[in-house]
Nucleic acid binder design. Structure first.
Lengths: 214, 214
DNA sequence: TGTATTCAATACAGTAATGTATCGAACAGG
DNA sequence: CCTGTTCGATACATTACTGTATTGAATACA
């Protein structure tokens, strides 16, 4: 399904660089105009290539989309792992742990906004094309697992533990993160500065709700 | 900004019906393919018109989009008001109140899925084009107000009250609803039937989190 | 250094979408 | 009725996008 035009082509450095530039460009364009608004043409333009480069590297737009998603997930996974390690060396105590983790997640990345937009687009894509759900869900599972680990470890360090089913806890936390960041950006757009607190408060509420003192 | 081609044209019944059919078609097509995937052509086809009808009724696609959004918000508002009234006549007591309200909201509408998709699309549109945020936010305010009323009244009937800032409570509840319905549809797509419980559980967690015994 | 290969650019043909200008059937008001 | 207006259909010109086939410069290799 995700097959190069010429199956086992050796990947030269040049080719790798081109692919990477196309992927980055796709991310930017999709964030700006959505999956359907991102024509092959526009992606290539953003990357500074012609469509020749595109079709030489990807069979279809969906092909590129799959690889982009896989990259985004790896990225996210890496970020969570980093936070886990960092928080092990430098562990705040008690309820501040929640604030600490939220800050870590939020502060992680300036291009977070772009990633969020791309992921939302793909989320919608998933709801719209339910036949693809199983595949994408499986791709997300490692990320969910790692996030759950971060959550339980973080809670343990704060002297708490999960009070609801792990799956439900994950859903709630992800909900809080998404709505929180959205509220934050909207607030920023309305003239008030980017208020990280909106996101932190929403997440804190939810983390308290899904946990109890150990 | 939202001006008819010929400014103060009298609205004949025929015209009104055409507009409505175009709006409904747009909703369906946008839900299926996204804002950018919904070409004027495809909307007209879905509605059973040619583009002549479209350009006779709307200046641009964005023009139609604005009207569509305004309709969706009115719809939502009406739904919440209905639940408020119904729950006054038939009030369950205690914590079951939460389940009751969630069920009411969930059971309300078979085309809910379509509305959710359209609203998500527009939410993304809002984040992407922050300059439009103030306008859309203002349009959403009545809805948020009414939802807050439903929440406080419902909580009061359950012998509880808000424990966090109203704005934060709203954000959290909306987050729960969105993630809950998404999880539900994804579960449905993965072979398990539509599990209303996923949504109910997520929302219950959140409602408990934002409230305390009165 | 010469030859083979790789890979993006170019050229081309075909399709889809846009917006405008015009036409004519349906439907008023008299 | 019939006459003027409304409104959606049609026709047309233009532009954007797609995908393929071919070319030629850069690169790897010997």
């Amino acid at each position: 399904m995700t097959e190069q035009p010429t199956p086992p082509t050796r990947i030269t450095p040049r080719r790798a660089a081109t692919r990477q530039r196309l992927l980055a460009a796709a991310s930017a364009v999709i964030a700006e105009r959505g999956v359907n608004g991102a024509s092959v043409e526009s992606i290539c333009e953003e990357a500074g290539f012609t469509r020749g480069a595109f079709y030489s590297n990807f069979a279809t737009k969906e092909d590129l989309l799959n690889e982009l998603m896989s990259q985004k997930h790896d990225e996210l996974l890496g970020r969570i792992r980093t936070i886990l390690e960092r928080s092990a060396q430098d562990p705040p105590a008690g309820v501040e742990m929640v604030d600490y983790l939220v800050d870590q997640v939020m502060a992680a990345n300036p291009q977070d906004r772009e990633s969020r937009l791309v992921e939302s687009e793909v989320g919608l894509y998933l709801i719209r094309n339910p036949e693809h759900a199983p595949l994408l869900l499986k791709a997300m599972q490692p990320f969910r697992d790692e996030l759950l680990r971060l959550l339980t470890v973080g809670l343990a360090r704060a002297g708490r533990r999960l009070a609801v089913a792990p799956e439900d806890a994950l859903n709630a936390v992800i909900a809080g993160y998404e709505t929180g960041t959205t509220a934050m950006w909207v607030a920023a757009a309305s003239g008030h500065g980017e208020d990280l607190d909106v996101c932190r408060r929403t997440l804190t509420i939810i983390v308290k709700a899904i946990s109890e003192p150990a």
